[in-house]
Write a protein that binds this DNA or RNA. Structure first.
Lengths: 248, 248
DNA sequence: CGGCAAGTTGAGCCAGGTCAACTCCGGTGG
DNA sequence: CCACCGGAGTTGACCTGGCTCAACTTGCCG
């Protein structure tokens, strides 16, 4: 009578980490969803094609880093968004949009959720709905913030923003530290913030020379001077009265 | 016994345009939501402050164009997103993000929805939920596409993208035309695509010289050569096999 | 320890930013 | 009806941040 938690799920962060979607499901829901879903391991460069995404448009990231990449006509490519542990990527309706691919930037594990069961579960379980919705909103805000970063900031500022994002997005779930883990390669980082790898390198060096950051190794940086970093990242105007009329 | 459709709603596009959220509600739901919500007219420059947004974080756009603006420490400001008729802006959870304002770019009408009633309605009415969710996903995709545009493209390409966005976003709901209405001023457009107004001007002229667009007046452009425009906008790589391994 | 991918450094160049002057247009008041 | 005004948009000249290309160094894995 009692259903048991599927083995796949037991060891999956989406389930055992309580802030994530699967942790909100009843055992029964989890079993139903798991039965129709597919847990996949990906290596660097592996892609979920857009054809595949049309059929299985909902993806939950269990570990690793995925990227949403756009390829432009001249071969330039660009990383539009990064997804990490706990993110639910809902690409329903992507069909009428520009072509894009979901590509893993390293080893990662994802769960391709059955849209049908997902939809059932979400409409039956308000708590699960809230969790997903919150995640989707966060993605939207991240995308919006990111497009601000991309549109007006210069390279150094973009990089500072990115370091801060790294610092707050993963590590600090557990404990607040002054360490940021850069979970992706320089090339990918460059593509994400829309500059050349060379520029990334130069900017890192600049921050290092100013004593603001320090490299533990290529992918781990210690933040020596967080306020300075924030200032460069150009946190938004906290200043005085804006020249706008507040209507409410 | 029968509740009547509130007058505010009768004349509001959110209700009479069937693709929008309010059109999906039962009369009873509409009355409840309307009772707790506030219909507001805004002029250019009017803002909903972030304090106000904390309390009333859900906004439906009935007409006009709103912008989500970020102000940076040095006074540079930047338009992160544009919202138009039918968009549901859900800023719940914005509190822990960077400061930003929702500012009207012209005359507009919005409805500030009661979060409580909204939440009730959405969890009770799956069709309404789907409508909102779809809109939110679209916003996310738009934000992502926009950040791609911002990060790698050059000015001319960004502008072409924007023109296409204008062409597809509003006008073509009704009929497909080769006309795009630019619903905002040059300055705002410049801020949105992350270049200077001067550059916008130069790029418009360039497109005009090449015979790709033609101005009817400042805010209405006829697209003389849509394929060329798309090519410049750099629609994504439709080309042959990508150098990625498709895992599924 | 070799070999290759990843990352860094340097030199030169150009797209677009900056600043300043100018034009265009709609509204206002005499 | 016209002169004036201010805001919006445009044009030109100059300058700089970051792209490009090529050479170099570092780090990783067998």
């Amino acid at each position: 009578m009692t259903s048991l938690i599927p083995n796949t799920c037991k060891s999956c962060s989406l389930h055992y980490d309580s802030s994530n979607f699967c942790a909100r499901l009843t055992t029964d829901e989890l079993v139903r969803l798991n039965g129709k879903s597919r847990f996949v391991s990906m290596k660097r460069g592996d892609a979920l094609s857009d054809e595949a995404l049309l059929q299985w448009p909902i993806i939950a990231v269990s570990s690793g880093v995925l990227s949403l990449q756009h390829l432009m006509a001249d071969g330039r490519k660009s990383i539009a968004a990064l997804y990490m542990q706990g993110d639910i990527i809902d690409l329903r309706g992507i069909s009428n949009r520009n072509r894009c691919n979901l590509i893993s930037l390293g080893n990662s594990k994802v769960c391709r959720l059955s849209p049908a069961v997902f939809e059932q579960v979400v409409s039956a379980n308000p708590e699960a709905l809230n969790t997903v919705w919150k995640n989707v909103r966060e993605q939207t805000f991240r995308a919006i913030d990111h497009s601000v970063d991309m549109s007006k900031k210069q390279a150094l500022e973009k990089l500072a923003s990115f370091i801060i994002e790294c610092n707050s997005r993963v590590i600090n779930r557990a404990k607040k530290t002054a360490v940021a883990k850069i979970p992706i390669r320089r090339v990918d980082l460059a593509e994400y913030i829309g500059v050349q790898p060379e520029t990334v390198s130069r900017c890192f060096r600049d921050l290092q020379n100013r004593g603001i950051i320090e490299f533990d190794n290529l992918s781990v940086v210690t933040l020596k001077n967080v306020p300075a970093l924030r200032e460069i990242a150009n946190g938004d105007w906290q200043g005085d009265a804006q020249k706008v009329k507040i209507v409410a």
